[in-house]
Simulated scan of single mutants.
Amino acid sequence: METPHTLLIVEDEILTAISLKSGLEDAGYQVMDLTSRPGEAMAAARECNPDLALVNIKLYGRNDGIALAVELKAIGVPVVFISGQPRRATAARSVAVGSLAKPYSVDDMVQAVAYLLARLAGDASLPCPKDLEVFDEDLPEVA
């Protein structure tokens, strides 16, 4: 049996985070403990090496998510921004593989995660979800 992909969710809106965790686990993903603080997220990422991190840009009143994405990318963890700030996410495209703007449904997120993980593995067979902005230069080329 295949080991499920591990995800890290960094979100300061607790109800959003819990809903995402539940929906992604129902879809077969392993979700690490939820965190809303960049320091905790980095410690968890170093310990568990997630396959993908879902990061909100605005964390507790600051815009720490972009700085966190820089740190995660440096240790090899791909990031997708899950933010109500799509322009900031696009401006920070060099540190993420994509962005899904709020508001989104859990189903939208499940589809986006499946698509991005497949692309990161070199598989282009899944259709790109309509609301997912993909930063193609950060994904491997697909033959």
Rank of each mutant, 00 (worst) to 15 (best):
D33F: 02
L132T: 11
G65N: 06
G39Y: 05
E11A: 10
D123C: 09
I18A: 13
R37M: 06
A43E: 13
K21M: 09
T6K: 06
K73C: 08
Y29K: 09
I82Q: 11
Q30G: 12
E47K: 07
A92L: 10
A101Y: 02
L8H: 05
E25N: 12
P140M: 02
M109T: 13
S105V: 04
I57A: 01
Y115L: 10
G65P: 07
V79Q: 03
A45V: 00
V55A: 04
P86R: 01
D131V: 04
E13L: 05
A89K: 06
P50S: 09
L59W: 00
P86M: 04
L100C: 07
M42V: 12
Y29V: 07
V77P: 01
I66D: 03
L20G: 13
R37T: 01
G76M: 09
A92W: 03
V70F: 14
E40H: 13
A53D: 03
K102F: 06
R37S: 05
R46C: 00
K73Y: 08
S83I: 01
A92K: 05
A124D: 14
A91F: 07
G84D: 11
R87T: 14
D107I: 01
C48M: 03
G23E: 12
P103Y: 15
G65D: 06
E133Y: 08
S94L: 11
A143G: 11
M109D: 09
L68Q: 10
E13T: 03
R93H: 13
K21R: 15
L139Q: 01
Q85D: 13
I75S: 12
R119W: 08
A92N: 12
D136A: 14
A121R: 15
F81E: 06
L24D: 04
V134S: 02
R87E: 15
H5N: 15
K102V: 04
A96K: 11
A121H: 14
L15F: 15
K102L: 05
E13F: 07
R62T: 11
M109I: 13
S22Y: 10
A118C: 13
G98S: 09
V55T: 03
C128R: 02
